[in-house]
Simulated scan of single mutants.
Amino acid sequence: MTHNNHQRIRLEAVTKRWDDITAVDAISFDVTPGQFVILLGPSGCGKSTTLRMIAGLEQATEGRIAIGERDVTFLPPGDRGLSMVFQSYALFPHLSVADNIVFGLRSRKVPKAERRERLARVAELVDLEAYLERKPAQLSGGQRQRVALARSIISEHPICLMDEPLSNLDARLRGEMRREITSLQARLGMTVIYVTHDQVEAMSMGDRVILMQNGRIVQDGSPAELYNRPASAFAASFIGSPAMNLVQLAAHDGAAVIDAEREVAVAPAAAAGGQLGIRPEDIEVLSSDASGVPAEVIDEEYLGADTILQLSVGSQRLRARLPGKRPMPPGTRCRLAWVPSAAHLFDADGLRRDDLTPVAFAANPGTTDPITTHSRASHL
C-alpha cells in the first residue's frame, strides 16, 4: 500500500459535549499518511471519544474532521474509508474464523474469487492459516485478536483505528501482539490511530504520541520527546516506569531546596514553589560522605535486573533505580546526585520551565567507593 493523501487525517478545534460535560475540548492535530499515532491518557481523558468521532460513531459538537481532502465531519462510518479494531473482538460465535474475516467483504458484495484470494493473503499475514475452519470459542485471546485484526486488514482501507485492542490479553501476549501490529502497519503502510492508557504500549509502538488530559492535548511529540522533555508535571508522571520523581521546592537562603531538606540548593530561587523532576534511573546513590543531597533509604525492592530504592529527602519521597542487586537496608544514609540535564523544573501550575537551570551534583571526584555508579540508559 503506497501512502497517499487519502490517508491524511485532520482535526480542527473538535469538541464533544454531552449536556454540560465537555469530553473533548477543541482539540486539533494532523496525522500524516503512514504514521502510527498513539492517543494516550488516563481513563476519562477523551481519547476514545476522539477516536469514535474520527470513525463517525460519535458526532462532533463543534469543529471539523477531514480525511484526505474530504470533510467527513457529518459522514456515516461506512463512507469514511477506514476500519476499526475494538477492545472486545466482536466476533460472530457461530461463524468460522474464515467467515468472520470475510464478513465485511461479503456484505459489500465483493466477488467470491477475490474474497478467497484476499483471505489467503491476510491469513498468512497474521498467522491464522491453520485456524480458518475453527470457531472463535476454540481460539486463545491472542488468536481472537488476530482474527479482529485480519478482519480490519482485509478491507484494505488505508486507515485503521484501534481502541485499546490489547487490554484483554495477558502481559506476555500483549508484548507479542504489540510487535505484530507494528510490523503489520509498517509492511502495509497503513495510517494507524491507536488509543491506549498504557504508556509502555505508547512508548514502544508509536511514531508519535498525543497525550491527553481532561479532554485536551497536553503534549504531542515522539515517544523520546515526551520522555526526555515532558511539557508538564502530568506528562512527566504519566510516561516512564517507575514514574518520574516530582518533589516540592521551597525557598531557602536565596535558592530553592527540596522541601524540608535545607542543606543543599537544587535550583535557583525562582524555582521555589514549583517542582523538581528526576527520573529514578537518573539518580546516582552515593555514600553518605560524598557531596550531594542527603537521603535515607526507606525500602528496597529487588526486581532481578535492577533494584528500586524508596528514599526520603526532607519531607519528600523519591525512587532510584539501580542496576543489579543492591542490598541497602532501610535506615541506610546516603547522598543523591544527578547531572543537570537529567533534572526538570515545573512551575506551581505544573508547566515546564526552561528558563531556569537546575543545580548540578556530580559525584565528588575525591570520594572513593560510591555506593553505585551506573549508566543513565533510559529504561522503560
Rank of each mutant, 00 (worst) to 15 (best):
H197M: 07
D306K: 11
L91E: 07
G81I: 03
L211W: 09
P111T: 11
V72G: 01
E201P: 11
G34W: 00
N228W: 03
Q59V: 13
V297N: 02
N5F: 00
H94E: 13
Q310F: 10
F361N: 01
G221Y: 11
P42C: 02
E300N: 12
A290W: 03
R333G: 01
T307N: 11
A123V: 03
S222N: 10
Q310T: 15
Y131G: 00
P358H: 04
A150G: 11
P294K: 01
D299Q: 08
A271Q: 10
E117C: 05
G366L: 04
A360V: 05
R64A: 06
F346K: 08
V110H: 06
L40Y: 07
N245I: 14
A348E: 12
C334S: 01
R115F: 04
V110D: 12
S167I: 08
V313M: 05
T367G: 11
L139K: 10
E225D: 15
L161A: 14
V147C: 10
E284W: 14
V195T: 05
Q199N: 13
T191W: 05
G350P: 09
A272H: 11
P242F: 08
M203T: 10
E69C: 01
T332H: 05
K109Y: 06
R106F: 07
Y227H: 06
I217T: 09
L149E: 06
E284D: 12
H6I: 12
D369W: 00
N245L: 12
V24L: 04
M212L: 14
V97I: 13
V266H: 01
A290M: 11
A23N: 11
A271T: 13
E261H: 08
D20L: 03
Q138A: 15
V147Y: 08
T22E: 15
V285R: 02
Q59R: 09
A267T: 06
A342N: 09
T373D: 09
L39I: 04
R321C: 09
W338E: 13
L91M: 06
A224D: 13
A60H: 02
L351C: 08
L188P: 09
A123H: 00
L336C: 07
L173S: 10
